[in-house]
Structures are given as C-alpha cells and as structure tokens.
Design a binder for these strands. Structure first.
Length: 775
DNA sequence: GGTGAACCTCTTTTT
DNA sequence: GAGGTTCACC
C-alpha cells in the first residue's frame, strides 16, 4: 500500500521540528516506521536514531516491522527503540554512578514500592489508617512526573499536612531506595534527566583529553533523529528527557490529543498542543484518513469525541464504506452480559474471524471476572492483557527476590520478602530486631544477619539465621561462578526448599505454582540462549519493565483477548465488544463523584473535574476506534461489582451514539444517574414498557427511557404503589410531619425499605418508605 | 516466638 | 474475591 500525501509528507519532512497529529487508525505506526527506514536509507546510522514508544509492546512491534522492512540492508538492532522507562534504565545502567546507582541497580515495581513505604511508615511510627502508604507514593509519583524533587517542594514552602507528610516519608523512602541500590519507575525518568542535565555543566579541566570527556555528554550529542510516539501521553519529565536527548537531533513527535488518557498519571496534553508554538519553524501535519474502521463505527466515535472542548479538532474520514451497524445491547445483569459476550464471540468465530482478532474491553479489571468465568464454563480460551501478570505472581516474585538478593546483597526489601519464605522459623520479631540495628548502623539486613547476636537475636532464631546466611552465600558464590541463569534458578528453588514446600502442600493451587516456577525456569533458560551475553541484571530489568506476560509466547496466541481500555491503546481488532457501558462504571464513579458534588453544592464543575470527565470521554473514543469492522456495545441494568449491587443506567457515551449507526435502540434522555442499591432489594426482570411520563408523582419518574429499552427498577417496595421507587441520593422527599427533605441513604427490602432523610433544621431521620412520598 | 485460621476492608486506568 | 490484619493456639 502506498502512503497518502499527508503520510508521505510526514515521512519526508526534514530540517525543522515536526508534529504529526495522527487520528485513530490513520497509519501512524506506518509513518513512524517508514520515516525511520527512510532515514537509514539516506545514510543516517541506525545508532544515531532514537524511537520512543509508550509500551514495550509497541516498541517490540516497531522493531519487528523495521526488521522486516530493512531486511539485511541495515543492522536494525543498532537502533534505539524503547519506552521512556527502558531507555532511561539503559542510560542509568551505564552511567548511573553519579546519581547513586550501580550497574546492577534494581527496579522496584508498585508492589515493591508499597512494601518499602510501609517499612518507612513503621520506622517513623506513622499510622496507616490515617494516610495510606499508597497515597503517599501516589503523591510522590506525581512530583516525580513533574520533575520536582522533595527539596524543591519544600523550598516552595507549600505548607499543608499532606505536603509535609509526603516530604517527611518520601525523603526516608528515597534514602532507603538508594541504600538498597534501587530505583522505582519514577526515579528512572527523574534520575536519567538529572544525569543528562548535570553532564557538561562542569568546566573541562585545562589540558583535558578527549577520553576525559564525560560519556554522558556524548549521549546528548549522539542522536541525529528522535521520534516520539503517543506524545499526548507524555508527562513533563518525559518531555524533558526527549529535549535533553535531542540536543542535536531533529525531533518528530506523533500523537493525538483526542487519545490522551493518562492525565491521572501526570501526562500533560498541553505539551502536544503547545508543541508547535514553542518551536520556531515547526511543521504540523494532520493525518485524517482512517484506514481501520468502517463508517458507522467512525460516526459513533465522532459523536462521542465531538462533545469535548479544548481539542485541536480533526475529522476522520474513510473509504471503507458504512460497514455494519454498531450493535447496542441492554442486558439484565452482568451475567447475562457475559453470556451475550460469549455468544457474540462465537458468532464472530463462525464468521471466520480469528480468535486473536476479537477483543473484549472493560473499564476496570474487576469486571473481567464474570466474563472469564463464562468463557471458562464454555470451554473457550482467552488471553488477558494487563492485570496480574505472570511476573507479579507471588511464587515468581519470591524467586526473583532470591535472585535479586544474590545479585545485590543490599536489597533489604528482597531480604525481608524471602527470609522466611518458605517458613524457616525467622519471624517478625527477629526481623524487627535486625531492622532496628540495621537502621541504626546504616548497613544492610544481610550484614546484620551475619552476626544476629549483636541485634539481640539468640538461641534457635540466631542459629536459623546463620543457616540462612550460609545458604545465601553459597548461592551467591554460584552466581559469581557464572552458573547459567536457568541452572541457578533451579538451584535456588531446590536449595531454599521453596519448591519442596509447595510440593508438600499438595493443593491444586500449590501445584499450579510449581508449574509456574517450572515455566519461569524455562523462560530464564530461553533468555540465556537468546542473549548469551546478558546477565541476571539484564534479565531482571527486562522483567520489571514488561508489565504483561504476553511476550512469553506461552500458548494463548490463538485466543480471544480481554483487556482494559487503557491497555487497548494502540491496538486494533476485527471485532470489539465494549462492555459495562453504564454510568459509574464508565465513566467511572470516581469521576462522576465530582459532578455529583458540584450539583449538590450548586456550583459549576472545577477545571480538574471537567478534565477528568473529558478524559473518560477520550477513553471511550479510544475504545470505539479500536474496532475495524464490528463493534458491539453492552450495558447491564443491574450489576454486581465490588460485592455490591448497582442499578445501571446507560452511559452518557451510549446516549451520544447516532441512532442511524446503531442496531438496538439508543436510550433517550436519562436525567438521573445510576446508583447503588442495597443487596436484596428486589429488582425487576419485567418486560419493556412504555416510559412513565416525566415528572409524574411516581418514584421512578426521573428515569425516562425510549421504548424498546427496558427501564430498570420498575418494581420495588410494594407500599409505594405499582411503580418502583428509583432511589437516588439527593432526591427530594416529603414526610407529613417533618416536611420536605433530601434522601441521603436507605436500607432494607420490600415494604420494609427505610429511608434516611435529611430534613433541614431537624437533621437525619430514618423513616419507612411508605410514610414518605417523592416530590 | 512462630504459625495458622478467622475476620476485616477495599476496590481505575500503567511504566 | 483478594489482600492484609488480628487473634488464638502451638
């Protein structure tokens, strides 16, 4: 296929910065690969080209495509292709000494971070009930995303409980990280930036030779071309990193403001919006011809995204024709939804759509369970993207912790993780004593464990510790003797008794874990074979940066894909089934809460609240534009989620769909949001009925549906007449004695429903529903 | 002092 | 439904 004129221009532009605004499905990846290939054709050495992607998956795909394109002509392995994090890690591995990291530093994932922060809480005597360790880490990460250090925040003099707490705990957390020779995800970016910024600031000594020049300076001058994908999702540090690495380079960024979905992670859309203005001579090229989706799908996408304000604006068009209508389906509950999803999958398979071209999307991981269950029941294979990956399983993390500890004796976190795993009689009290002395002397736990008596550990516990240390030393000696990694892992699992402990447990679960361990050893062996020159540190890095386990080729290739919409970014499928399209599921309740609060307080939305809702809308846009030929959208009138029953109203995004492009009636105006209903409240499976007239004095008058879509909550407490009360917080209610009040909650079932009502001047009263009437 | 069983809470999205 | 925490028992 030929490139279209806009794509061609983006491939060929040289000389000044370039922004490619690429709508969904407009051939963005093609442009990037062609551009890089063209550069190499022109004689730019591959090692002087840097391509940054957002996910490892995208990086791998790009590399693969490039290899295919340049077969034999150029050594593609010389290209720098990777995510921001992997590129930073690579730089720090080589030059990280000056920012306090050795060659073998560890990368801590979210789980490691939490464990470390919990330790800080304990050490500084902080109560986890007031502020959660994760919350502190969240704030800390936001700082890092913006490129701020704790000292800078303190200098800003931002007073406030949270700021002070973050500073206090964060500082100690960082100290412990450095002491353990480790970096978290945020550090990778921040430290790489710090390293690059520092380089070249010191005046060269008189008479310095070329060999004395800081190699990091070379890195800043190295690249002649830098291409950044998904630029709309970069945060300020990432943008800074790009800046620093393209000192000499021509910079080309590619992205789509309508697909910015990582604001919550510190990404800043204004960076792509403002890109041309900040760079003189910057060229802007729009890609608007969509090659992916058929007309009805595109129209649905446009109907959703056009309601956002503050976008650069693009109109996608396609030559693929209208295609089939988008299916919209109202389901009774999440189980029926799951059954429907499976039937849709079967239909697609019968139409000879390959399984891996069928995807099921949901807003949150929690929604996947019901669908997985249904797929399993019907004997269908599926592959989950994201979520708890292979490398996040306990047994794998434990094994990795052993390996990391062998590699890096300072890694206290790994020490505490496995010192009593499997149980070997070294409990909390003992570890507590070690930790106290270790903190006091500022040495590692393993060091203290060598002489536990000094920490006040005696008798049996001390003996066990000696044995443990001896075992670790032995294994570490094996590592340094150059035993192949697969072999080393096997020895670790044998020698530590980890494997035996699982085997003896005998449960199905334990058996599965043993299988996972075998698989892990196998993967490690494969890795060594494929990359004979790489070390354990290299392997560990790869593992910690690859979030999902799809790269392992572990069988599930020909399977239906299940994933959150976030992980669907950048992918495309013949058939997409978008589930859970209800208010409070999608858009997520956390976001709607802002709207509710604003309504209650009678004020307009704050900018950040509005921004969150617009981000959800962009997420919906991303979901819809993943579909090539078939799109199915489902919502459930009832849903059990988080062990709670919800009544569902169709998502606003569903209501925005153009009726002419949809099979199945698009729900009409819904003026009240979905709400949680206490378990046990009987909910209807009544056939669709004509909607109740608006503002009729009946409990559900606030929900109006078009004919053809069943209204939820038709039946309810018998006492209130034929029609059911659709209860919602904030609802106006009258009581004979207390007068008018607002509903704040309810409890009970049937005719025993009790309402909690707030009466002005009286306070909250609990009253049986039948003594109240809706207003 | 350590271990296991019963109870409790908390649920967005990812490198 | 999973993870953590508390408690009672070895």
């Amino acid at each position: 296929m030929q490139l279209n004129p806009a794509q061609q221009a983006a491939v060929e532009h040289r000389g000044s910065p370039l922004l490619v605004l690429a709508g969904a499905g407009t051939g963005k990846t093609r442009v990037i690969t062609h551009r890089v290939a063209a550069l190499m054709d022109e004689g730019v050495p591959p090692w002087r080209i840097l391509a940054v992607t957002f996910t490892n998956k995208a990086a791998a795909e790009m590399r693969a495509r490039m290899e295919k394109m340049c077969e034999g002509k150029v050594d593609v392995s010389q290209l720098w292709v990777g995510t921001f994090h992997s590129i930073s890690a690579r730089i720090l591995r080589r030059h990280g000494e000056s920012v306090g990291l050795s060659r073998n530093f560890a990368i801590y994932d979210t789980d490691d971070q939490t464990r470390l922060m919990k330790r800080v809480f304990k050490e500084l005597n902080r109560d986890e009930d007031q502020v959660k360790p994760r919350a502190i880490l969240g704030h800390l990460d936001q700082l890092k995303n913006r490129g701020l250090t704790i000292s800078q925040v303190e200098q800003l003099g931002l007073e406030g409980f949270m700021t002070r707490l973050v500073a206090l705990l964060g500082r100690r957390y960082e100290e412990l990280l450095r002491a353990a020779d480790a970096a978290d995800f945020g550090d990778l970016l921040v430290l790489a930036v710090k390293l690059l910024e520092k380089a070249g600031t010191e005046q060269p000594r008189p008479g310095a030779q070329l060999v004395d020049v800081d190699p990091v300076i070379g890195l800043k001058r190295r690249f002649l071309h830098v291409v950044v994908d998904e630029y709309q999702d970069t945060n300020p540090v990432q943008a800074r990193l790009v800046e620093l690495l393209s000192g000499r380079a021509q910079l080309c960024v590619v992205g789509d403001d309508d697909q910015a979905i990582y604001g919550w992670r510190g990404a800043d859309v204004s960076q792509i919006l403002g890109f041309p203005d900040q760079r003189p001579g910057c060229e802007l090229i729009r890609l608007e011809q969509n090659y992916r989706s058929t007309g009805h799908i595109l129209r649905c996408a446009d109907a959703i995204i056009r309601r956002n304000e503050g976008r650069l604006g693009k109109t996608l068009w396609s030559e693929l024709g209208d295609g089939s209508l988008v299916t919209l389906r109202a389901c009774e509950d999440e189980r029926e939804e799951a059954r429907f999803v499976v039937n849709e999958i079967l239909d697609a398979l019968n139409e000879d759509i390959p399984a891996e071209e069928i995807a099921v999307f949901y807003r949150t991981h929690a929604q996947s369970r019901v669908i997985e269950q249904q797929l399993t029941d019907r004997g269908m294979r599926y592959a989950i993207f994201g979520g708890l990956g292979f490398f996040e399983r306990k047994e794998i993390k434990d094994t990795l912790a052993y390996l990391r500890l062998l590699q890096n004796p300072n890694s206290d976190l790994d020490f505490t993780r496995i010192v009593n795993e499997p149980a070997r009689g070294i409990g909390d009290t003992t570890v507590g004593r070690l930790t106290a002395l270790a903190a006091n002397r500022n040495v590692s736990l393993l060091t203290i464990a060598r002489a536990p008596e000094e920490a006040g550990v005696s008798g049996a516990a001390a003996k066990r510790l000696h044995a443990f240390v001896a075992m670790i030393d032995e294994l570490a000696a094996r590592l340094h003797a150059g035993v192949p990694l697969g072999q080393l892992a096997t020895e670790v699992l044998e020698r530590t008794g980890y494997r035996d402990a699982l085997v003896h447990e005998g449960s199905d679960e334990a058996e599965a874990r043993v299988e996972n361990l075998d698989e892990f050893v196998g993967a490690l062996t494969d890795f060594v074979q494929e990359h004979p020159d790489q070390t354990l540190a290299d392997y560990l890095e790869q593992v910690s940066l690859v979030a999902d386990a799809d790269g392992g080729g572990r069988g599930e290739v020909r399977a239906v894909r299940l994933m959150t919409i976030h992980s669907a970014k950048g992918l495309e499928f013949e058939k997409v089934i978008l589930t859970g399209m209800e208010e409070k599921v999608f858009p997520h309740s956390r976001v709607i809460a802002g709207e509710d609060a604003a309504r209650e307080e009678g004020r307009r939305l704050r900018p950040e609240e509005r921004a969150q809702i617009e981000e959800e809308r962009r997420l919906a846009y991303v979901a819809v534009t993943r579909a090539k030929r078939q799109l199915v959208i489902t919502w459930a009138k009832r849903r059990r989620l988080y062990n709670q029953e919800f009544i569902g109203t169709p998502s606003r995004f569903v209501r925005d769909l153009p009726p002419d492009s949809v099979r199945g009636r698009v729900p009409g105006v819904v003026r009240r949001e979905a709400m949680a209903v206490p378990q046990g409240l009987s909910l209807p499976s009544a056939p669709p009925r004509a909607p109740a007239p608006v503002r009729e004095s009946s409990w559900n008058s606030d929900i109006v549906y078009d004919e053809g879509v069943a209204a939820p909550a038709r039946r309810g407490p018998a006492a209130v007449g034929g029609d059911a009360p659709a209860l919602y917080k904030g609802m106006a209610v009258r009581h004979r004695q207390y007068g008018e009040g607002t509903l704040v909650g309810w409890d009970g079932t049937g005719s025993n429903v009790k309402l909690a009502i707030n009466f002005p001047g009286v306070g909250v009263k609990t009253i049986l529903a039948r003594f109240c009437e809706p207003l």
